[in-house]
Design a protein around this nucleic acid. Structure first.
Lengths: 158, 158
DNA sequence: GTTATTGCAAAAGTTTTGCACCTGA
DNA sequence: TCAGGTGCAAAACTTTTGCAATAAC
């Protein structure tokens, strides 16, 4: 287990205790799997399959309930790639290297999802706080289009 | 019917004919309802209920199929507010007043959704085309946070 | 007349829930 | 001990699909 994973686990344990909730194997393993799979945008079913390898008795419902809990504790980010399954990844607040906000480029041709790093949104968030009086906690930005590879494929074909 | 609504209908008729598809009452009415309800972020079920008032025989499946078709023809935008129902509105390309891109502010406290206009993303899209070689066709930007009213309510309570 | 389209019902897929049994504190 | 958590199965929802009947061109 990496240092970052230990750190995440400690935060989870602390927040669970604060709320009088219990530290269970299932909760620790779900968090662990997500930490080992940054930027993989995992759906509940994906997490379920991976957790089963380490803890075969787990139920899918537990994964859903755990993910919900981790979201509320702000340990996860939720992403929706419009394929009918909600996806999750370790929250950007807990990036070990304090990386930038990251967004998603979704190719309409091949479906590939690429992360894209950028900080430009901070300026926009400042506008929103000022103009609309809306206190921004989080954001989700997706770009739909055609990826480099598909563009090249299209060129060849024509 | 407003001038804009006639314009939308004409575009739909033209594009249907181009593709050898048929101009049906159902398609015209679904588009009409969406045009009458800009910025309402309507889910399929909402559209179905409103269309039924004018055309009671319509089926929910037809609404789903029509919305899919209108999306492909770029007459609609799709929005996902993470409540498990996909929503639709008349595409920003067809705003009568050539308004700016609009995004959504989603209040985590009361659930209210507010549109927010801004052009800042164009700069970012240029970056993406250049840095990642990704050709952007569309985007979706959502801000999660606490709205003005809920912030004031919180202040009073404390 | 021919082909696309529709409405209905059934199916598919994801997420939630009820409940008896367990487990962590 | 005992409140909170889990696994299972059933339920709840949204969205899609198959198909016979219908409407558009």
């Amino acid at each position: 287990m990496t240092k970052e994973q230990e750190h995440l686990q400690d935060i989870l344990k602390k927040r669970l205790k604060e709320k009088g909730l219990k530290v269970t194997q299932q909760r620790l393993i779900v968090l662990q799997i997500l930490a080992e799979n940054r930027d993989k945008h995992m759906a509940a079913e994906d997490i379920y399959e991976m957790v089963k390898e380490e803890y075969p008795e787990i139920g899918l419902a537990t994964v859903y309930r755990t993910v919900q809990l981790l979201l509320e504790m702000q340990l996860l980010d939720r992403i929706n790639l419009d394929d009918g399954r909600v996806r999750y990844e370790i929250g950007h607040l807990f990036a070990g290297d304090m990386r930038h906000n990251h967004h998603h480029l979704i190719c309409k041709s091949c479906g590939k999802v690429t992360p894209f790093e950028d900080d430009l949104l901070e300026e926009l968030e400042a506008h929103i706080e000022q103009d609309a009086g809306f206190h921004v906690l989080d954001h989700e930005l997706k770009f739909y289009g055609i990826c480099k590879e598909c563009l090249q494929k299209q060129k060849k074909e024509s």
